[in-house]
């Protein structure tokens, strides 16, 4: 079933990608900004969530600032083994997201760990479990994080 977003949904979705205030009635503050009522904002967010336009609403954490680490990793997985390897990789809680991509390196995932050593430990474990190399691409410099997608 397809759902249509009206212009108000789009404006709200764009605003919701920016920071929510740490106030007693944050959605009322946000409603005032974009000319809606608090109840309308709340019901629209619930609907956008239930329809899948919003996958999550809440704080975005930076593992690095918590003393932890993120690392983009990639593997070249033979197609016959893909599902088996996927199950082994995804079984690790440290795998935050994982994408199949069009390249010989066809499995790209992000490890998020509570300590920098956790990256090496998890990647090494995945290598032992799968017999495949886990290439590690930690960020050396971050140029800009725009995040936003215009609805």
């Amino acid at each position: 079933m397809t759902h249509i977003l009206d212009q108000t949904d789009r404006d709200l979705l764009n605003r919701l990608q920016d920071d929510l205030p740490l106030s007693h009635r944050p959605f009322a503050d946000l409603a005032l900004e974009i000319g809606l009522t608090e109840n309308d904002v709340l019901s629209r967010i619930e609907r956008l969530k239930s329809q899948g336009f919003i996958t999550r609403f809440g704080p975005f954490f930076d593992a690095a600032a918590m003393g932890g680490a993120f690392c983009l990793c990639a593997m070249a997985v033979p197609s016959a083994e893909f599902e088996t390897v996927l199950t082994k990789v995804n079984a690790h809680d440290e795998v935050a997201h994982n994408y199949e991509r069009t390249h010989q390196l066809n499995m790209w995932f992000v490890l998020a760990t509570e300590t920098p050593e956790g990256i090496t430990a998890t990647a090494d474990t995945i290598e032992q479990e799968t017999g495949l190399i886990v290439h590690r691409f930690p960020k050396l410099q971050e140029f800009f994080i725009g995040f936003r997608v215009t609805a």
Partner: peptide
């Protein structure tokens, strides 16, 4: 937030749905 542990409190949009 000031120490960067929380980057922001916001929606994660589903790019595909959009």
């Amino acid at each position: 937030k000031s120490t960067g542990v929380i980057r922001r409190i916001a929606a994660a949009p589903n790019h595909y749905k959009l």
